[in-house]
Structure formats: structure tokens, C-alpha cells
Design a protein around this nucleic acid. Structure first.
Length: 360
DNA sequence: AACTCGGGGCT
DNA sequence: AGCCCAGAGTT
């Protein structure tokens, strides 16, 4: 794209006004004004590394439960995690919760408009600060996410790997110098919308692109080769044993540590697969265990298999169990944030309960 | 600069 | 079966 192409923002904004998606954190089509800063903050945290279509139902549920930033700040972290269950990257939920508390304590309950104050909030980096500042407050701040990175690389015909720091620096500069004097929030949103719907990773729809005439990659026919593919790393397999312990119609669950994967969330008793033939020592005295199935779970950098067994506690009032734990019914699990694989384990238990006690 | 952190959609 | 997604925090 040429440096002094003054028609670029106009063409992009005109396209955006015509085809933009009506998303719940945006001002409805046809109405003017900026969206609510709290709504923008929540949506931007949810959207980090997550596609729009996944976020929409979570956003509705979250706003229904926490209508204002003050509601969120006053909530229990476990409730916030429960609303986030299934969305992944749970540190985002904890950071958003902490950010809300900080906004109440330090900014009178109003999301700050300045980049410096936004960057000081947990979970808010350069992208998110720029998005909130520009979209909610009209501040002249650039953004650079996965979509904008791809759009700018193709517009400028940059064939280098955009993950390199040097390229990143160039792209941030570029994202800043193309900002128009007005409607910066819509302009930034339009750049991302273009990347998400037209300038897609594979099979970009250049015939529908409002700025195709400004695109170096399109002119050279190399848009499919930008950005260069990433070299995939092998994903190691982790084996786990899940011991579902029942006492009456209650099941034993334990809370995960406050750091690491699925931090602070709850699970059925889970241990690494024993190296030898020795079974996993149960946390309470139990009767014979029955294997009820296997749950497989794929993450970005890891694969899991959970071998699920089921047994009964043989002690009516078992002695102290190490670490935070609870006995809950299958219905009561809804009050606890569970990692996805343990939601699958719960489904196994429900299926099995139905098979054992068919309706008469 | 490299790792960690979830889960799902799309090709 | 890969690759990516409105990235941020830690090491």
C-alpha cells in the first residue's frame, strides 16, 4: 500500500459500514456512538486467541451474570471461572477479574482511556490496550493482532516471517501510520474484520476486498504465500488415570493448584499413569475399581488420554484428604469450574448411571 | 527469544 | 492432520 494513499481508510470504512457483523459488544448497526468500555474490555479479553463465533454465547452469559464492571469486581473468582468454563486460557478470566477490581479501586469504577493506565491492567497487553482505547474511547492507538498482521503483510508484500521481532516492530509502526484522523475504533475493527472474513489465512477472497487495488501481494499473486507457514512441533502424549470415587450419590473432586494449566479449577481425582503395574493409591479407602472408558483431549502443544475408572468409598466418614476437595453430586458439578476433559468424564458417569438404572 | 496457556473451527 | 484464532505473562 502506498504511504500517501488517502483513499485507503475511506474505502475500508465504507466496506465496513456495509458488511460488518452485528456483534453483541458493538453498537447496533445504524446507531452512532462508541460501545460501552466494560463491554469492550470483556470482549477483548475473551477474544484473545479465540474466534468470534466461539465468544458470542460466552459474552452473552457473562454479561447476563455480571451486567456491570462493579458486579464483576464484587464476584468470586470461582464464579468468574465457571462462566469461562470451556473457553480456555483461564488466566484471562482471572486477569479480567483482577482488572475489574483494580478499575474499581484505582479508577473509580471507570475503565481508563489512556494507554499507560490500560497497559497497567492485568491481562492487557499492547494489542488489548490499543483495542480498548481506540474502540471504546476513540484514542489514536494502533492495534496488531493475527488478522491485522496478515492484512498488513499482504498489503505491503512482506514475505518475511511476521513472528520475527523485527517484522513485528515494522508492522506496529505501519499500523500506527495508517490510522485515520477520525473513526479510529471503526478503522481498527475494520482491519480485523477484513482479516477474519476476506483476507483469510487460506483462500483469501480478493475479489471481495475493498482495498485489493492497494495490495502488493494481490498484484504479485503471492497472497496465498503470505505469511509463510509455521513449522509444526510434535505434540507429546500425556497419560493420566482418573479415579472417580463415589460415596452414595456424591463424587470426590479435587481442586487443581493455583498455577499452571487449568489453575484453580476442579477435577475428579487424577494422577499420572503409574510407571509400573502398581495401581494409583486412592485418596480414601475404596472397593474394587471398574474401568468405564477413556477420554481423549487434544490441546495445542499436548495430547492427553485419561483412563477413567470408577469405585466406591468403603469408609462412611473418610479421614482427612490432602488438599482442597469436595463431595458433590453429578448435578452439583455445575457449581464448580471443570476442565473440558473432566466435563467429558462427568458425561461418562451420567451415561453409566443411566445404563445401570434404566427408567422402569 | 522461547515457552506456557485451551479449545475449537476450517481446509 | 495441520494451522490458526481480535495475545499476554513468564522464564
Amino acid at each position: 500500500m502506498h504511504r500517501n494513499d488517502v483513499t485507503f481508510p475511506a474505502r475500508l470504512l465504507s466496506w465496513y459500514d456495509r458488511v460488518r457483523r452485528d456483534l453483541p459488544w458493538r453498537v447496533p448497526a445504524g446507531r452512532s456512538g462508541a460501545p460501552h468500555p466494560y463491554h469492550v474490555l470483556v470482549s477483548e479479553l475473551m477474544l484473545q486467541q479465540t474466534q468470534v463465533a466461539i465468544v458470542v454465547p460466552y459474552f452473552h452469559r457473562f454479561l447476563a451474570r455480571f451486567p456491570t464492571l462493579a458486579d464483576l469486581a464484587a464476584a468470586d473468582e470461582q464464579d468468574v471461572l465457571r462462566l469461562w468454563q470451556g473457553l480456555g486460557y483461564y488466566s484471562r478470566a482471572r486477569n479480567l477479574h483482577r482488572a475489574a477490581k483494580r478499575v474499581v479501586a484505582e479508577h473509580g469504577g471507570h475503565v481508563p482511556a489512556g494507554m499507560e493506565q490500560l497497559l497497567d491492567l492485568p491481562g492487557v497487553g499492547r494489542y488489548t490496550a490499543g483495542a480498548v482505547a481506540s474502540i471504546a474511547f476513540g484514542v489514536q492507538a494502533p492495534i496488531l493482532d493475527g488478522n491485522v498482521t496478515r492484512v498488513l503483510c499482504r498489503l505491503d508484500g512482506i514475505t518475511d516471517d511476521p513472528r520475527d521481532r523485527e517484522v513485528q516492530t515494522r508492522l506496529w509502526t505501519r499500523a500506527e501510520e495508517i490510522l485515520p484522523p477520525i473513526r479510529v475504533g471503526d478503522f481498527n475493527s475494520a482491519l480485523m474484520e477484513l482479516g477474519a472474513t476476506v483476507c483469510t489465512p487460506r483462500s483469501p477472497k480478493c475479489l471481495l476486498c475493498p482495498v485489493a487495488t492497494a495490495c502488493v501481494a494481490q498484484a504479485r499473486g503471492i497472497q496465498e504465500d503470505i505469511p509463510p507457514p509455521k513449522k509444526a512441533k510434535p505434540t507429546p502424549l500425556e497419560r493420566r488415570v482418573v479415579l472417580c470415587v463415589a460415596r452414595g450419590d456424591h463424587w470426590l473432586i479435587e481442586q487443581r493448584p493455583a498455577t499452571g494449566r487449568w489453575a484453580g479449577m476442579w477435577q475428579f481425582v487424577t494422577r499420572p499413569e503409574p510407571a509400573g503395574a502398581d495401581p494409583v493409591p486412592p485418596p480414601v479407602p475404596v472397593g474394587p475399581a471398574t474401568r468405564i472408558g477413556r477420554v481423549e483431549h487434544q490441546l495445542t502443544h499436548r495430547r492427553y488420554t485419561f483412563d477413567v475408572t470408577c469405585c466406591r468409598s468403603t469408609d462412611d466418614s473418610p479421614a482427612a484428604i490432602a488438599g482442597p476437595h469436595a463431595w458433590v453430586t453429578l448435578e452439583g458439578l455445575k457449581d464448580y469450574p471443570l476442565p473440558k476433559p473432566h466435563v467429558k468424564v462427568a458425561s461418562l458417569l451420567r451415561t453409566r448411571a443411566l445404563e445401570q438404572a434404566p427408567p422402569s
